[in-house]
């Protein structure tokens, strides 16, 4: 176990150097190609197609995220660090007859999905709205769905990359294996969870009035949900009333949908349809709130 965590610490350090610390000092790189970004007219006077526009937006949103130290820490470093710590210290504990590691890996995958697709996204939306960035972008011909799609795509890409890293580290470094036939269930849960939390992020951003309030507000809501949903503490060890309360919320549903494929000894797809359905209901509610309340202008959340 011990040599496992040591090797993983090295991997984390390498990942950190690649994504995080290396870019921290020099925030802005020279673009690799000099001519292409300079000459968008090369393709003629037609605007990019829908997919092209979304990818164009996502490319720059990803750079923005990658160059923000706080966002890097919260979405990439923290889940990786917690995984290594939890698995290294308590991974081999037994909880309700199962290894605690089978809770921690899916729990932290859920954390990473939520960190990118919700927490960081809410902060990013509120900050860019309040600083007038969103309003300025909306004064151009770019359609609203391109801005939302590009940013959500960025969140999903980071969510799924970090999740893949967590699963791989758990598997290779700590022997937390996943039956091959259960992989689609994990992927489906992560993608669905990411989508659900992106929608919720656009809804919750409408309730927060200032960039300063975004981070603490979201953390204050999320921390109790994390604790009650088997993210930090295997939820098999929690009192049943707390588990039932937590199961109302999408955090627990996502963690559970990810946990099932890991926990089950039985072969099969292990898709947690009920969990996905509950997340879909939350996403629908979030969509309703976002459609009703979302604004691109500063000061939008202040009336809430």
């Amino acid at each position: 176990m011990f040599h496992g965590s040591t090797s993983i610490l090295i991997i984390v350090a390498v990942v950190a150097a690649r994504f995080g610390l290396g870019r921290g000092i020099k925030a802005v790189r020279r673009p690799r190609r000099r001519t292409a970004p300079d000459d968008p007219t090369a393709s003629g006077p037609r605007r990019r197609g829908a997919t092209g526009l979304v990818l164009h937006q996502a490319r720059y949103d990803l750079r923005t995220l990658a160059r923000n130290a706080q966002a890097r820490t919260a979405t990439i470093m923290l889940p990786l660090l917690l995984l290594v710590l939890f698995l290294g210290m308590w991974g081999s504990d037994r909880v309700a007859g199962a290894a605690a590691s089978t809770y921690y890996v899916p729990g932290l995958v859920a954390l990473s999905v939520i960190a990118s697709s919700f927490t960081n996204l809410v902060v990013s939306i509120v900050t860019q709205r309040e600083s007038g960035v969103l309003k300025r972008r909306r004064s151009t011909p770019v359609p609203a769905w391109v801005l939302i799609g590009g940013r959500a795509l960025t969140a999903m890409a980071v969510s799924l990359s970090v999740s893949t890293g967590l699963v791989a580290i758990g598997w290779i470094g700590f022997g937390v294996s996943l039956p091959a036939e259960a992989i689609p269930a994990v992927v489906l849960a992560a993608v669905a969870g990411s989508l659900c939390f992106c929608v919720l992020a656009y809804a919750v951003a409408t309730l927060i009035g200032s960039a300063e309030a975004a981070q603490p507000t979201v953390q204050a809501v999320m921390l109790p949900l994390y604790l009650g949903s088997g993210i930090f503490i295997p939820n098999a060890s929690l009192p049943s009333w707390l588990r039932q309360l937590a199961s109302v919320f999408p955090v627990e549903r996502l963690a559970d949908a990810l946990h099932r494929p890991y926990a089950s000894a039985a072969p099969g797809l292990q898709v947690a349809w009920t969990d996905l359905a509950v997340m879909a209901v939350w996403a629908a509610a979030g969509l309703a709130v976002a459609l009703r309340r979302f604004s691109w202008l500063p000061g939008a959340g202040r009336t809430a």
Binding site: V28, P45, R63, N68, R136, T140
Partner: peptide, 30 residues
């Protein structure tokens, strides 16, 4: 706009390229 911060984390060239991508026939960033 009266009050708007620049797009965070990007260089001047990247900002201009990002917005250029929103238009059919933009000017070159340079």
């Amino acid at each position: 706009l009266q009050e708007s911060q620049p797009d965070p984390g990007l260089s001047v060239r990247e900002c201009l390229s990002l917005y250029a991508g929103y238009y059919r026939a933009p000017r070159r960033p340079a």
